[in-house]
């Protein structure tokens, strides 16, 4: 879409971000700054002489918003085209927002995140052994062409190795069986 430059120009107010990486980085950073700034407004600011808990975070968050905006502006004015994730578009073809994310694969992201979340929510309840096993069973699916049989082999192996390293060798005192199982 938007193969004619004029159309793309109009849709973004006459300006096209030339570096989608800069645009996204700037927006994410500014969003973090804004969120912290809003929350910081809820804390006592105090004075320069005697700063309250809200003063420092508010100032730092303000700086971050400013930097985020500066990076966004730079995305339009002087894009950072040297980065390898953002090949330069010399052909001027349409907007390239999301170019850096054009090739985002959801499989690794979902599987890795799910595995960590699973561990966090089950380690107290199920205990170390089952939480480790479950996590080790979920993560391998981040890779393409993973079969259930292979994942099972990896999970069993990793659970044994982890127990040997952390429980037998490092002697960490961790509950092997969780509360839910009466451990």
């Amino acid at each position: 879409m938007g193969s004619r430059p004029s159309e793309a120009d109009r849709s973004t107010g006459g300006l096209r971000p030339r570096s989608s990486a800069d645009l996204i980085a700037g927006l994410v950073l500014a969003a973090f700054g804004l969120a912290f700034a809003v929350a910081a407004l809820g804390y006592d600011r105090g004075s320069l002489l005697n700063m309250g808990p809200g003063y420092f975070p508010l100032v730092v968050a303000g700086i971050l918003v400013a930097l985020g905006v500066a990076i966004v502006v730079k995305a339009y004015v002087a894009p950072d085209l040297s980065h390898h994730d953002t090949p330069a578009r010399s052909d001027g073809e349409s907007r390239d927002e999301g170019l850096a994310f054009a090739a985002v694969l959801w499989r690794p992201i979902v599987a890795t995140t799910a595995a960590l979340v699973f561990f966090a929510f089950t380690v107290d309840g199920l205990g170390l052994v089952l939480a480790t096993f479950g996590t080790a069973l979920i993560v391998p699916f981040a890779a393409k062409e993973m079969t259930v049989a292979r994942a099972l082999v990896i999970a069993v192996g990793l659970t044994v190795v982890s127990l040997v390293i952390f429980v037998v060798l490092l002697q960490l005192r961790l509950a092997l069986l969780g509360e839910w199982l009466g451990g």
């Binding site: 890795t112 595995a115 960590l116 561990f119 996590t135 993560v139 999970a155 990793l158 982890s162």
Partner: peptide
């Protein structure tokens, strides 16, 4: 990479 995730979690 599964080892990394599991070791890091524990």
């Amino acid at each position: 990479f599964p080892s990394i995730v599991v070791f890091a979690s524990i």
